[in-house]
Amino acid sequence: MIHLLAAGFAVLLVAAPLGVAPALPIAVTALAGLAVAAPGITGFWRWPATAAAGIFLADYAAALWVSAAPVRVVNGAAFGLTLCFLLDAVDLACRLRGATSDGSVIRTRLVQWGIFATGTLLVVVLAVSLATALAAVLHPTTAPLLAAAASLGALSSLAWLVARAQWHRQFPRPARRGN
C-alpha cells in the first residue's frame, strides 16, 4: 500500500513539470527521475528517492524557466508537498520493511498528510493574498527592501530555530512527576 502511495507521488512529480512545459527534454528528465526513484520505492532505499527528488526539482525548475509561465505559487507549494510526501512515504516503507503492521499506520499517516497539506496550502493562499494586496499599495522600488527584509527574517528564524534546538540539547527539561 505504502509503495503504491509513493509510486503515485512519483507519478505526480513526473506529471507536474510536463503540465508546465510539455517538451521532450522535460519528459526525458522526468522519466529519468522516475527511473531513479523506482529502486528507492521498491527496494526500501532512501537515497535513490532523495536523488530522484533533486531530479524532479531540477526538472520542475527547468520547465518553469523554459515556459516562462505566469507565477502560480500554490502549484509550487503543491509540488513541494508532493515531494515531501514522496520522501516520507519511502521512509515509512523502509520502516515497515520486514515488519508486521495494520492499516492504522498508513491511515494515520494519510490523515497527517492531509492536515499538513491543508495547513500549508492555506498559509500559502493567505500569504499570496496578502502579497497581492500589499503589491497594490507598495511602490515597486520598495521591492528590494522587502526582499532584503524577508531574507533577514528567514535567516533570523533559521538562527533562532538552530539556537533553540541547541539549547534544548544542552539543558533538557526535567521529566514531569508521574511520568
Partner: peptide
C-alpha cells in the same frame, strides 16, 4: 531561476 514557485515548493520542506 528567480521563480517564486520553487520558493513555495521549498516551504513544506522547510516547515
Amino acid at each position: 531561476t528567480a521563480r517564486p514557485e520553487l520558493f513555495a515548493a521549498a516551504l513544506p520542506l522547510a516547515a
